[in-house]
């Protein structure tokens, strides 16, 4: 990956995948993040004004969809990467030998 791979801090780790694009156009990346974060907050707080029709009780809770989307994805990624992969991951030349 990039030179920053060896850094251990959490910020450095989060930064690493962006390095190539940061090198090229730091402004664009920054704009992307700022716009995204604003959008995220706006849409999460929209629940104050929007009434969701409840089917199960839980889905009417304000912010439910935001948190559920975030949470489900974290669980799925971590689950795949650290549980499923532990058992089923192989080198991509596995079937070629």
């Amino acid at each position: 990956m990039s030179d920053h791979d060896n850094d251990t801090g959490i910020i450095a780790k989060l930064r690493a995948p962006w390095q190539s694009m940061l090198d090229e156009s730091p402004k664009a990346v920054r704009t992307f993040w700022v716009v995204s974060l604003v959008l995220l907050l706006l849409i999460a707080f929209a629940d104050i004004f929007v009434h969701h029709h409840e089917h199960f009780g839980i889905d009417g809770t304000p912010g439910f969809y935001s948190l559920y989307g975030l949470g489900a994805c974290v669980v799925m990624v971590l689950g795949s990467k650290f549980v499923v992969a532990l058992v089923l991951k192989r080198k991509d030349t596995y079937y070629d030998d």
């Binding site: 780790k13 969809y65 994805c73 990467k81």
Partner: peptide, 21 residues
């Protein structure tokens, strides 16, 4: 709104978890 919430926040999850991915 609910769909946008769901999607955008899972997008956040993606970018936060990029090192893991």
């Amino acid at each position: 709104v609910s769909q946008l919430q769901l999607l955008l926040w899972s997008g956040l999850a993606f970018f936060l978890l990029l090192p893991v991915l």
